[in-house]
Design a protein around this nucleic acid. Structure first.
Lengths: 344, 344
DNA sequence: TTGTATGCGTTATCAT
DNA sequence: ATGATAACGCATACAA
């Protein structure tokens, strides 16, 4: 390994000067800089990132924490891929690297390990849920002065750095769309209330229904776990009460697709016999038959902003970032909800 | 930050002894160990990972390199999610962390940056293609003595660490299945030959066709780019020659699904009017209508073995790993190919 | 079984 | 504009 020392010798300067050249610090003679750069090139010198981290007392790594579940995909792969790409784009711009950490439920209490070991300067946390234990872990993390930003999850009553999407508005638009298409008996298949976006979607649903002068029928409210299978299972229940249902709003695409599959097996075809809208506008929405109307969520941008926010916080006097940001969602109408019933 | 020194003082031992306790080295009195641990606990001491890396001259990070394409998904998200999880499971077992690096095409010539900066001890490379420039980059990397393992990509004529799946056999089984169902006019929608698995699939297709006494019709061979859209576009061409096609084997699920969508728009329904088999057995295969028969590829296991192989190589005299491993694939039959034409 | 001493490659402070 | 040098927190070879 070629070190700064060798470069300094070859360039006939001190080691400090070599560092200055590579860090662009202080005024210096162009000739000196040239000589150092030349020597470095000849020797093939590259600063040792670990030594730099050690000396600077920061790792240059942004931790990305995600729940780890062997061979299980509670969240769609799409969701993570988008967010990861967004984070990736941002860290690259700031010269950081991404340290990926898959946390099992057992580790949830140990969010702090990465920080304590100094492997990361800050973290972006994906897939968090509002449980007693996670709440406590995050509060503790905050008390210890560690910087983190949550993506797509809010914790009411607590003041964390959060980048979320406007799921209330998205759901509101989805249901408004169904209403405009002439549907009134609209069921709602939600996910676990441990996710703030589930609660948001419920609010959006309720708001649209009430505004339309309709009542919220408890028997039209279902809860799945965001998996295709849970949507498929909900189809059986919906089928039993098909005379009371014209349309369904599902809290994600996977459940919506499972739902369509289950109902199709019984001869009820989405976009013909009933309407469906999902959430996420994932690839699966385009791949399904019929193509699924969905609420688009800017996952890429959310990842990017989360990384930016949390790096700004640890950065050297960088721009201040609002504590909580909420990005807009977007209704994407496809065939699954397009036929309508004649409109209002 | 609490350091080893403070622990040593409180426990009335030397700093070296503290290190020994935390690294489980050498024989030591149980009482001493107890005292050190107690002191560490009282002070809240945690070894500084960066200082450790610095002293050990290894980072403890496994680099994971993936092609980066803003908002584009050439590979399915499923593919990466599975492999990443597999790598994650393995690194966790070995006490390593994953450093994610998204490389743009421009960076392809600079595979070495991560190594030179000492940020990683080894890399797993995903999504590599057999192009002139990538070949050269990898050869150079190898010459510089850097350890890496390729996943799902082989480079003929070169001797790299590679973990692949048996795509030849998978394709062979897929086509055999179609033949057994009574189809003989079997088209093949492949991906770019820059991917070794595309070539493998071609070989499997040819082998099965020739064994069945059939000829390879060049007009039945199509090339897409692994995207749904390219499958959708291929549907138009296939439709033109529908009298000469009974079944289609596609090199991934996304193209197969695009294909089904395109043909359905023309009234040709998969599993009824023609048969289709895809590859990857991704989530999309289960979500599509009809459910898509597919060749399952053990991406999770491939990621895991790749991480294992390359960490063994840099590890302290760990077990030797074969240079090239090839994991078995698996035919998953679903409705898209199930109807058959009455058998052979 | 434990202590001592050296080195790891930078950054950053203080001289000059 | 540049040089000298003290940290930084740990691993490890060698001594005791």
């Amino acid at each position: 390994m070629v070190t700064r020392k060798e470069v300094a010798e070859l360039a006939h300067v001190s080691e400090a000067t070599v560092s200055r050249v590579f860090n662009g610090l202080g005024p210096m003679k162009a000739a000196t800089k040239e000589r150092v750069l030349e020597a470095a090139k000849v020797l093939g010198y590259h600063p040792n990132a670990i030594a730099q981290s050690f000396a600077r007392r920061r790792s240059g790594n942004l931790g990305v924490i995600l729940p780890y579940m062997p061979k299980v995909h509670l969240f769609s792969a799409f969701y993570f891929a988008e967010i990861l790409s967004g984070i990736g784009e941002q860290v690259r711009e700031q010269g950081y690297d991404m340290l990926l950490s898959l946390l099992t439920p057992d580790d949830e209490l140990d969010y702090g390990r990465l920080y304590r070991s100094q492997k990361v300067d800050a973290c972006v946390i994906l897939g968090a849920r509002d449980t007693e234990s996670q709440r406590n872990s995050l509060i503790q993390l905050q008390e210890q002065g560690h910087s983190f930003c949550l993506v797509n999850q809010r914790f009411e009553g607590l003041s964390f750095l959060e980048v979320d999407a406007d799921h209330v508005e998205g759901s509101y638009q989805a249901v408004r769309h169904l209403l405009a298409e002439g549907y009134q008996k609209i069921a709602f298949l939600n996910g676990s209330p441990q996710y703030s976006n589930s609660l948001d979607r419920l609010h959006g649903y309720e708001k649209a229904m009430l505004e339309a002068g309709l009542t919220i029928e408890p028997e039209l409210m279902f809860e799945g776990n965001y998996s295709r299978t849970s949507g498929y299972e909900a189809a059986a229940k919906l089928w039993e009460m098909r005379d009371r249902v014209e349309a369904i709003f599902a809290a994600n695409d996977r459940m919506a697709i499972g739902l369509m599959q289950g109902l199709r097996e019984r001869g009820w075809v989405a976009g013909r016999d009933f309407a469906v809208i999902g959430c996420d506008n994932s690839d699966a929405a385009k791949l399904s038959d019929p193509p699924l109307s969905s609420i688009g969520v800017p996952f890429f941008e959310m990842g990017k902003q989360a990384a930016r926010a949390v790096l700004a916080r640890v950065g050297h006097g960088a721009v201040e970032h609002e504590l909580q940001v909420k990005l807009p969602t977007e209704l994407i109408v496809r065939q699954s909800s397009r036929i309508g019933k004649g409109g209002v």
